[in-house]
Amino acid sequence: MNTDIAQRVKRILAEQLNVAPEALRDDATFDDYQADSLTRIELMLRLEEEFQLEIPRDDATRLEDVKGAIAFIEARAVAARP
């Protein structure tokens, strides 16, 4: 696991889900933090901005939890980098 990417993903998720980064559990779902549809879209936009990538809409709607988001970004971001 790329800890740098994981930390950056968690920082953004924590900010958008209004929790302290250290309180964000890896096994938590976005539902656990009462994220509504607007918040979920904003999450993806901010991840796209941070990692300079485009998350296809279908992939975005399948992302439901912290672990999944980290794995998804790791796969994309590592692949995108030289």
Partner: peptide
């Protein structure tokens, strides 16, 4: 500054 893809926000219009 960041372009339309990364510069906008879902919260902007509401």
């Amino acid at each position: 500054k960041k372009g339309p893809r990364h510069g906008s926000s879902a919260y902007f219009l509401p």
